[in-house]
Design a protein around this nucleic acid. Structure first.
Length: 500
RNA sequence: GGUCGCGUGGCCGAGUGGCUAGGCAGUGGUCUGCAAAACCAUGUACAGCGGUUCGAAUCCGCUCGCGACCUCCA
């Protein structure tokens, strides 16, 4: 396989060779959360997927500017983009808080969860409310270019006019313009300020009781959803940049309208490559904030949910997500999580064994040596093929077999070279920690000297008991520790332990 | 109704024309005081029907089932 990076571009629906605009640099914008409620697991999956993409781009040596926004104004309740309440504003009113208190609370929670999942921070995390001026400028520019009109203090994007001037409105989401012009859903009628049903608000005049409001040339109001991403991506990445990402439920209308705004404002398409993650399912249905079919990460960690039998740690979840491709749906089930938990431990254990290995000398490059090097190469090839983490992971597991074989001595170090062993160590380290972003979370020895000392004492006592064939005592130690979620592992070179 | 996508062995999940994906579970074995852990071995899988082809899970058509989007969502 080739060494170049291939990505699937939602815009063309094809895999394409990735070529950044500026050699060695990548600009990537990913739509972040609207902070009006706790982040749910589906959101986390998307951000983990882009975290792996970000990490892999960096691993390849690109200098990446990763921008992920916080939407803290403009996102409206309900199906309409007029006559409805801003999500943040509503939450603030209901809980008698300042809107910014709501925003701060859920932003903090989001950050904490991203940290728990060990995602890297974006390079810039701009907020919609911090970019009102940029958004007003953009509205003005779109008006000046004739692709928007004002109506009673609100400003609407003129999709019909835009579609006539730019043939590709609807390209990303596969919409046909004529269909968009005909309103099909009964509950969306009577939006009489708009000229066409497909038009959307880019500036919204605030009702008197609306809490979030800013001065503008048209009214005291607030910016429409979609606009913040156009304005902030332009500000930090330029009129055109390399990668734009998000969940595929954002394709329409959000991303389609984002493109329209950027083109309508600056006459250039925002991103060369559009990457969309697929949805996390639970019980075969989309995990969704709005219809309640969702589980929070906290519930998943604690096991406090009717959908699961026990808790699963953040890294088990991350591993679970890595096992499916970012463009595929993933169905969350208890059995699948249990399988992921065991798989994760197997991988991490093998890595520990590997990193402790010393080549005894007597090196040679035999079939095993070639096999290992081929697998290492294949793992990279898989990542180069549209970030195929599950396939790369499969290659790693094939290498786990080799590692265990060497450890178990039915494969011989005499068949591999020291440089191959080193390459294998580097491969595992790079993939597990740098690319997949996994952490060692249940290490037996984790720098806790007291615990290590105590465990060593217990293991010694049990060894004495066993040497004296005092099975009652040795089994009591083993079984009691097991109840405390500490597993003893009797191996050829003595006993080790691991906390589950 | 429109647009798009999916259907892979007990479960999860890659694969897009010929070559064992992988994980988990199961089964047999090695190890063990017995276990656990670990290791080894082990699977007539590709929704159905038709077509193209020397060859189809993979391409085409139809049927059935499921899902997403169609101005709330990652």
């Amino acid at each position: 396989m080739e060494n170049q990076l291939i990505v699937y571009n939602s815009l063309t629906r094809k895999k394409e060779v990735f070529k950044p605009m500026v050699e060695g640099h990548v600009g990537m914008y990913v739509c972040g959360p609207t902070v009006y409620s706790d982040v749910h697991l589906g959101n986390c999956m998307t951000f983990v997927a882009f975290d792996v993409i970000y990490r892999y781009l960096k691993y390849l040596g690109y200098k990446v500017r990763y921008v992920r926004n916080i939407t803290d104004v403009g996102h409206l309740e309900g199906d309409s983009d007029i006559g409805a309440e801003d999500k943040i504003s509503k939450k603030a009113r209901l809980e008698r808080l300042e809107p910014m208190e709501v925003v701060q609370h859920y932003t903090n929670g989001f950050h904490k969860m991203m940290q728990t999942f060990n995602t890297l921070s974006p390079s810039i995390e701009p907020r919609a409310t911090g970019h009102i001026i940029e958004q007003i400028d953009m509205v003005q520019q779109i008006l000046d270019n004739g692709f928007a009109y004002e109506q009673n203090g609100s400003v609407y994007f003129d999709t019909l006019k835009f579609a006539k001037a730019h043939k590709n409105y609807g390209q990303l989401s596969g919409r046909v313009i004529d269909d968009l012009m005909v309103e099909t859903r009964d509950d969306l009628k009577n939006q009489n300020e708009k000229r066409h049903p497909s038009d959307f608000a880019i500036w919204i005049k605030a009702d008197p009781e609306h809490l979030m409001r800013w001065e503008s040339p048209w009214s005291i109001g607030f910016p429409g959803w979609h606009l913040e991403c156009s304005a902030m991506s332009t500000k930090y990445l330029g009129k055109t940049f390399d990668i734009h990402g998000g969940g595929n439920d954002l394709k329409f209308p959000h991303h389609e309208n984002e493109i329209a705004q950027n083109v309508g404002c600056c006459n250039s398409a925002p991103a060369n490559y559009w990457l969309h993650t697929n949805m996390l399912l639970m019980n075969g249905k989309k995990m969704s904030k709005s219809d309640g079919n969702s589980i929070t990460p906290q519930q998943l960690f604690s096991g406090d949910s009717e959908h699961i039998t026990k808790g699963y740690s953040p890294m088990v979840n991350r591993f679970f997500m890595l096992q499916s491709h970012y463009r595929s749906t993933l169905d969350l089930t208890d059995a699948a999580l249990q399988a992921a938990e065991k798989g994760y431990r197997r991988l991490m254990e093998a890595n520990k064994v590997l990193q402790a290995m010393q080549h005894p000398g007597n090196e040679a490059s035999n079939d095993l040596d070639k096999e290992i090097n081929t697998l290492i190469q294949e793992a990279h090839d898989k990542m180069n093929d549209d970030f195929n983490a599950p396939n790369a992971l499969a290659k790693l597991f094939e290498l786990v077999n080799k590692i265990n074989g060497l450890h178990d001595k039915h494969l011989s170090f005499n068949d591999i070279t020291t440089s191959t062993l080193d390459a294998l160590k580097k491969c595992f380290h790079d993939f597990i920690f740098d690319i997949f972003g996994l952490l060692e979370e249940n290490a037996g020895s984790n720098g806790n000297g007291t615990l290590d000392g105590l465990m060593q004492l217990i293991i010694d006592i049990r060894k004495d008991a066993r040497d004296n064939k005092n099975w009652a005592t040795s089994d009591k130690i083993r079984d009691t520790l097991k109840e405390l979620d500490i597993q003893l592992k009797d191996g050829k070179e003595g006993t080790s332990w691991v906390k589950k």
